[in-house]
Design a protein around this nucleic acid. Structure first.
Lengths: 122, 122
DNA sequence: ATAACCCATGAATCTCTGTTCAGCTATTGA
DNA sequence: TCAATAGCTGAACAGAGATTCATGGGTTAT
């Protein structure tokens, strides 16, 4: 048994844990996914309109939404033949807002906002 | 002219900005880079020892260090024929620590810590 | 019922990224 | 000087990820 042990920083990261960390960051490692999130941050949107606003094909958007869905970053609800997507919750919204705003600060590397990231995974 | 304008969240993210955001997250989107950072979080380390501890070839480690270097996440100093690498600064250390600890919390998705991420980019 | 529209999905393709491999420089020790 | 060690780098190769293309299901309108 033995509980996972609150690994303070005293050992090399396990491969399994490193994998999980990398997977989350990879989700945000695509510019088009960020653009999609940026549209959703303005309010719920149909796939079709989403595609138009980010200038991608509907298919490409749909594939990306699948990824964001399985990561629980967006949710959706159907209405007739339309499907409306939204940011899953305020954590995701804060994540987008914080990272985005941090990048607006001039003279700095691409910026982020870590508290939001923490929340985004809950 | 016209200053960049503190883009509040009212428009679609520009492609250029989305790109920068994605690039930063991509840096942390590889498990081996996390493992390397985890070793460096324990103290400065030679490339050779680094390779041994994360179980990678020296060459592979060297390639990854090149990426981390150009992202200013690690720094180094030579001593004879050895090259010692360290985390660039406490921001990077905090980033690693926070994200790592967040992941230790049971029953949650891969976790992160956004304030550290913000700092890590300065 | 038929046509048009919205969206999802699988396969193929293409691109990007990471590792391996071979070779090179520089430094140390015999 | 010669051999061995430490590290870096470019090219080749392989795998992962993203888009395109074609297709199919479900819904609305005619």
């Amino acid at each position: 048994m033995s509980s996972p042990a609150p690994s303070s920083i005293s050992e090399v990261l396990s491969y399994e844990k490193a994998q999980r960390m990398a997977e989350f960051f990879s989700l945000l490692g695509d510019p088009n996914r960020w653009r999609i999130l940026s549209v959703l941050a303005l309010g719920e949107t149909r796939v079709r309109d989403l595609a138009e606003r980010v200038d991608m094909t509907e298919s490409a958007v749909s594939h990306q939404l699948r990824i964001l869905r399985s990561a629980r970053m967006v949710s959706y609800h159907k209405q007739g033949r339309n499907v409306f997507y939204t940011l899953q919750d305020h954590h995701i919204f804060n994540l987008y807002r914080d990272v985005s705003e941090h990048l607006d600060e001039p003279e700095e590397d691409p910026g982020l906002a870590a508290d939001s990231i923490a929340e985004a995974n809950e």
